Simulated assay, not measured.
Amino acid sequence: MKNIFLIALAVITLVSCDQSQKTGFIDNSELINKYQEKIDIEAKFKILIETFQKRTDSIGRAFQVEAQAFQQKAQTMSDAQAQQEYQVLSQKQQMLQQGIQAEEQQIQLESQTEIDSLISKVRGYVKDYGQKNGYTYIFGSNEGGSVIYGSEANDITKTILDALNAGYKK
């Protein structure tokens, strides 16, 4: 009886140890940076930033012209009148700078929100991919070294990237 129990325990132990765990890893930076949706998001924000920069340059040049005109006009004004005009001009400059800063922050916030959403989407896709394809673990490699070495056979970066890009094109 004791021998049967030991044999059963040994068989159960061997069977449970025999179950291999399917693992893979992805290169996080490559996956994100080569994902077409991220490339498109960056292109969209590059255009927004260029447009914003042109507009702010134009506003800056217009303000410089106004400031130069004030300097010429101030020479013919009384000190009190010149001081009053200078305060108005200073307030206008502050308002312009605040508006530019607010718009710049808005662009940064929108960009970061879209990138965060994209990263969340990619993580969800990797999780679903792992579940559907029988993976026990999918690790992410990065500069910090969460995967220092992985066999090329276990690198599923290209497979997932191709699937993500194919889904995005649809």
Rank of each mutant, 00 (worst) to 15 (best):
Q84A: 13
I47N: 01
L89H: 05
I7Q: 12
Q72L: 05
S16N: 14
Y137H: 15
L109S: 13
L161W: 03
I100V: 14
Q97I: 15
T136L: 09
K22C: 09
S111E: 15
K22A: 14
A67T: 04
G167K: 11
C17N: 10
K22R: 15
F52N: 00
Q98I: 03
D40T: 01
I32E: 02
Q101E: 11
L9H: 06
D116A: 13
E152S: 12
N33F: 06
K22T: 13
L109H: 15
I41V: 01
S58M: 03
Q94K: 14
A67F: 07
E103D: 09
R123M: 14
T13G: 08
I49E: 06
A102S: 15
Q68H: 03
L89T: 07
Q64W: 09
M1Q: 15
L89Q: 08
Y137P: 01
Y125Q: 06
G150H: 03
T23C: 12
S58T: 06
N154W: 03
I12E: 06
C17G: 09
A82F: 03
D27N: 06
L164Q: 00
T23R: 13
Y129S: 03
D27W: 00
N3A: 14
G144E: 10
T51V: 10
A163K: 13
D40C: 02
E85P: 05
I12F: 14
F70K: 01
A82K: 07
K44W: 02
T51Y: 04
S78R: 03
I47G: 00
S90L: 11
T76Q: 07
Y125F: 15
D40W: 00
V122Y: 05
V126K: 01
E114Y: 09
E37R: 13
A74R: 04
Y86V: 00
Q108K: 15
K121A: 10
S20M: 10
N154L: 09
D79N: 09
S117A: 15
D155I: 00
D57Y: 06
A8D: 08
I107K: 04
Q106D: 14
Q21F: 14
D18P: 02
A69H: 01
M77T: 02
E103K: 06
A67C: 02
D162L: 05
